[in-house]
Design a protein around this nucleic acid. Structure first.
Length: 320
DNA sequence: ATAGTCTGGCCATCAATTGC
DNA sequence: GCAATTGATGGCCAGACTAT
């Protein structure tokens, strides 16, 4: 993504249209072959709807022909020989990442239906307004403030675009604006609020699996901050650098809890609880940074100081 | 009237099962 | 032994429902 849509290109009025085209089709590892073709033909960024359609259509058309001749690949993959979209990019498939999604009325979208809204006038005016004095500026030399994560999310959801109204796709789009340097890293509380609003998604279920009981916003904020503070306190600076430690990272980590669990149980290997129970940890002898020398050492202790937990919860109660 | 929440249904994947 | 079918899963949306 850094290669195809660097921050400098996104500062243009058509920047968001391109980012929507990218995120809305799940570009990434699963579409690598397609992106190689795109690279050879001059890159992903396009200045209008017609050329964006021209980017996808030839390869998509070949896929349709291929599937009609040979049927879907084993395992039910209908994306063709050179997939132009990946509807499983967030782990579970989503119809709305399909290049020709089907809406609630059973109507299958055309490529024009799919990409048209991304290049609509409203998207561009909203984007230019959101960029403010960042429009067409060189990001490297710009000194001004960035917009907050939450206000960026509000801007995106107000556009009311199919696939970007709630959930992971718009979440990752806003996160990518942070990593590209256009928006501010969210505060932990902003991420915790999002997790609370998405109670069926991985991060919330991750907190539950770890044993937190989270019936309301305050309890989600507390649980999230307890995890965040624990990692923040015990990971070394080197660890944090390697992991890209941030409020967004902690959300990502929580998403993995349930997946690890299901993979372990599914593979009949073990479970997280069983693994944790089998590890004999001399907690009192835990040494910061030992994991750098000893790959079997844990980068943080497994137990928490109850006083630290109380402090975290008290802080949350104050902002409430 | 409006905002927030819930329900039902769509779709794709993958494993398990069934059929030939 | 292989292909086709079935079922479970979960992200997403529209529309219904609920509370204020």
């Amino acid at each position: 993504m850094q290669e195809h849509l660097p921050g400098s290109k996104l500062m243009a009025p058509k920047g968001l249209s391109n980012l929507l085209s990218w995120m809305g089709t799940g570009q990434g590892h699963g579409t690598k072959k397609f992106l190689d073709i795109v690279s050879a033909s001059g890159g992903f960024f396009q200045n209008d709807l017609d050329t964006m359609l021209a980017l996808f259509w030839p390869v998509h058309k070949d896929n349709i022909v291929d599937i009609s001749l040979h049927g879907p690949a084993s395992g039910g993959d209908k994306r063709g020989k050179v997939p132009v979209y990946d509807d499983t990019i967030w782990g579970q498939p989503s119809n709305y990442l399909n290049i020709t999604p089907t809406n609630a009325h059973g109507i299958t979208y055309t490529l024009e239906d799919k990409f048209g809204p991304y290049f609509a006038e409203e998207v561009q005016t909203t984007w230019v307004a959101w960029l403010g004095d960042l429009v067409n500026k060189d990001l490297a030399t710009h000194q001004g403030d960035r917009k907050s994560w939450t206000s960026t999310m509000d801007m995106m959801t107000a556009l009311n675009l199919l696939g970007f109204k709630a959930g992971l796709t718009v979440f990752q789009l806003v996160n990518s604006l942070v990593f590209l340097g256009l928006a501010k890293m969210p505060a932990s509380v902003e991420v915790a609020d999002w997790i609370y609003d998405h109670g069926t998604l991985g991060a919330y279920r991750g907190l539950q699996h770890l044993g937190f009981i989270c019936p309301d916003l305050g309890s989600v904020q507390s649980a999230y901050m307890i995890i965040y503070n624990h990692l923040h306190q015990f990971l070394t600076e080197d660890d944090k650098k390697i992991l890209g430690f941030s409020p967004i990272f902690v959300e990502h980590l929580l998403c993995k809890v349930v997946r690890w669990e299901s993979r372990l149980v599914e593979g009949k290997v073990s479970s997280l609880d069983k693994m944790a129970a089998s590890i004999d940890l001399p907690e009192e002898h835990w040494i910061s940074g030992k994991n750098k020398m000893d790959q079997l050492a844990f980068p943080f202790p497994f137990s928490s100081d109850p006083e630290e937990l109380k402090k975290t919860i008290a802080t949350i109660m104050k902002i409430q």
